[in-house]
Design a protein around this nucleic acid. Structure first.
Length: 347
DNA sequence: AAGTCGTGGCG
DNA sequence: TCGCCAAGACT
């Protein structure tokens, strides 16, 4: 039996019922695809429901302020997705008359949409036979065909896209694409794939050659950088604090945080108050208390952040300050959010 | 084109 | 514990 036919048969019996599978509205499909990039369905689902309720149309999303969008995205990670989503929503409303583009070549022009997402939207919403290649597809195809080309090499990306494109069911491309992804997610899993009950065992090269555990092959290992963060959690006499917006290209762009002093190592109170930034911020007398005795290690994909929260009590400040009651309105990274939850439960 | 960008779950 | 990796895209 043909690969796509067998896959479709499996899908119809095993597919997950997910809210974005009840629609072909490109705005909703777009939303779901962006949210699910490098993100598990279990984690993205609640955000999808929240977004579609708050922003039922692209116009609603476009007219929201970026900070509101980021606040709603808080906790989902990879925040450039939210910024690009919002940017493209405004572009669709202002430049495309509110109409979502209808072909792969037009869809992929949108900021934040690459080959995968353009293929997904074009196939699901507009029946265009463009094959998706995500982590699931790499795994299924590398195992089934016994391909050892690294999936994150330039050659591998081209090779797998070509094979995926050759396999797609052109009569139902949207269903086929979702079928191969669901098969990878539920059956041909990274660890402990269900080979015992697999409909493809009689033709799977990896199964035949006992290579299932070795495939797919991914090259390079990421390097993790250690950083040492000191957040200055200010409490003035009139119950205000300072948050600043992260700018530039690094982590958490667009999110807010307490004034940050980064150091080369873990530092103590004396070392903290002798830094230039500290004396700039607090020329006057302050009370300083280290909130967490042991540094909090926050792990990102490429960085480990060794973090200390310093509680600083001072009279009042000339800098722009915000009220502690309003702090929950600001989009913050999980590291800050976790601190706030614990800190405010005690105060 | 190799590095960067979050967070959480799993074995 | 710790490494892997999850509906990738951008620079």
């Amino acid at each position: 039996m043909k690969f796509s036919k067998k896959l479709t048969y499996w899908y119809l019996q095993n597919k997950r019922n997910l809210p974005w599978r009840e629609t072909k509205n490109p705005y909703f499909i777009w939303l779901s695809e962006i949210m699910l990039q490098q993100t598990r369905v279990a984690q993205g689902l609640a955000y999808y429901l929240k977004f579609t309720e708050a922003f039922p149309t692209v116009f609603d999303l476009a007219k929201a302020h970026e900070s509101i969008v980021l606040k709603m995205w808080q906790g989902l990670g990879y925040y450039s997705r939210a910024r690009n989503l919002h940017f493209s929503a405004k572009h669709i409303v202002n430049e495309l008359n509110g109409e979502f583009p209808t072909t792969f070549l037009e869809i992929i022009k949108l900021k934040g949409i690459g080959d995968y997402t353009a293929s997904a939207i074009a196939s699901i919403c507009f029946n265009e036979p463009t094959a998706v290649v995500d982590g699931n597809v790499y795994r299924v195809l590398s195992r089934y065909f016994g391909i050892s080309t690294p999936i994150n090499s330039t050659a591998g990306i081209k090779e797998f896209k070509k094979i995926a494109q050759s396999l797609i069911d052109k009569s139902q491309p949207g269903m086929y694409n979702q079928a191969i992804m669901d098969f990878g997610a539920l059956h041909c899993k990274p660890q402990n794939p269900l080979c015992d009950s697999c409909p493809f065992t009689n033709s799977c090269v990896a199964f035949e050659k006992n290579l299932v555990k070795k495939l797919p092959i991914k090259e390079k290992k990421i390097k993790i950088r250690k950083r040492y963060f000191n957040f200055l959690v200010i409490k003035t006499a009139d119950n205000k604090t300072i948050l600043s917006k992260r700018k530039g290209k690094g982590i958490w762009q667009g999110l807010y945080e307490f004034p940050l002093i980064e150091s080369e190592q873990i530092i103590n109170k004396n070392e903290l108050i002798s830094t230039e930034k500290f004396t700039d911020l607090f020329p006057n007398e302050t009370t300083i208390l280290l909130h967490n005795k042991k540094e909090i290690v926050h792990k990102l994909s490429h960085q480990h952040l060794y973090t200390q929260f310093w509680i600083i009590e001072t009279k009042s400040l000339e800098n722009t300050t915000i009220s502690w009651e309003n702090i929950q309105d600001f989009p913050v990274p999980v590291l800050i959010s976790n601190f706030l939850e614990e800190f405010q439960s005690k105060n």
